[in-house]
């Protein structure tokens, strides 16, 4: 309960919700991670497969940056389980199933244009 009263009275807030520094680091990282694939794609620097890899890896990294530096996914209330992280992981797993499953199932079902 002690944790609660801190929470609503604003002590420790800067610490709990990230600092200016973490926001700036996050911002710079996400700009860098956006520029890398843009440069690679627009200048046609690599062949198809490595390009796709770079696009996806930087996108995922950027998502992680948003999660940690902006959305503060590491925060937790007291010693409760991290329900939000569990839900997120499950949700991402389902999205992966939906996307890859659809691609797999539809491979031989394209109407071919």
């Amino acid at each position: 309960m002690a944790n609660h009263s801190d929470h609503s009275h604003g002590h420790d807030e800067a610490h709990a919700h990230g600092s200016l520094k973490s926001y700036i680091v996050g911002f710079i990282l996400s700009i860098v991670l956006t520029i890398i694939p843009l440069v690679v794609v627009l200048n046609h620097m690599l062949s198809q497969l490595p390009t796709i890899l770079i696009i996806m890896v930087t996108a995922v990294l950027q998502f992680v940056v948003q999660l940690f530096f902006f959305m503060h996914v590491r925060e937790r209330q007291g010693n409760q389980p991290r329900w939000n992280v569990m839900a997120l992981i499950f949700g991402l797993a389902i999205v992966l199933v939906v996307v890859s499953g659809s691609i797999w199932i539809m491979t031989y079902n394209g109407v071919g244009y």
């Binding site: 956006t34 794609v41 627009l42 046609h44 696009i55 996108a59 950027q62 998502f63 999660l67 902006f70």
Partner: peptide, 21 residues
């Protein structure tokens, strides 16, 4: 707002970047 930004990153990657590469 952060969430919408994250979604946009994937739009940029999957739709636009993979579209024009």
């Amino acid at each position: 707002w952060h969430f919408l930004d994250a979604v946009w990153i994937f739009l940029l990657s999957v739709v636009y970047l993979m579209g024009v590469m």
